[in-house]
Every structure is written in C-alpha cells, then in structure tokens.
Amino acid sequence: MVLSAALFSIGLYGVLSRRNAVLILAGIELMINAAILNLVAFGKFDKVHDAGQVFALFAIVLAAAAVAVALAIILQVYKYYKTINPEDIRQLKD
C-alpha cells in the first residue's frame, strides 16, 4: 500500500512537472500501476474469487491499450505542432 502510494505520488509529480509528453505518459503509467498495485493489495481480502487479481489483469490490458492510444496521440501532436512539450500547446486557452 505504501509502495503503491509512493508510486502514485511519483507518477503524479511526473505528470504535473515533466516537460515531455512521453515522460508525462510514463507518469500516468506509474499512477495506473500504483492503482493496479492497490487492486492486487486489496485482493488479499477476497481470496475466494480473487477479484482484485482479475481486475488488475483487466487494468493492465486497458493500460496497455491506453498507452498505445496515448502514444499515437503524442505522435500526431508531434506531427502537428513539431513539439511534444505541453507548455507550448495552449489551444485549450479561452
């Protein structure tokens, strides 16, 4: 649990402070893994169905899919903006 909390915090920090979209993606992966780790940890309370492990497996698959999609987005963004620094991408501004 402590490990997963630490992992989550490191991931969060990575997401918030990196200047590279790929590293932000890595941060997100860290946070997802922290969550998965949490699922595995909470799986200890359900030894009958092992719901935690099952959900962890699902989550890992989903995370992989998400990473694939996110990397594709980053590639497209790079193609469009010639940068992958989120500081420079401000089209959401009003």
């Binding site: 402070s17 501004k93 009003d94």
Partner: peptide, 17 residues
C-alpha cells in the same frame, strides 16, 4: 477566473487534483 483558463493541460490537472 479567466486566468485559470490558460490552456495548459498540466495546470488543469493540478487544479483537478
């Protein structure tokens, strides 16, 4: 409030957090 709408994804995320 306008100042918050600065278009930086990470900022939005921080505020969400």
């Amino acid at each position: 409030l306008r100042r918050s709408q600065n278009g930086r994804v990470q900022y939005y995320m921080l505020s969400m957090f």
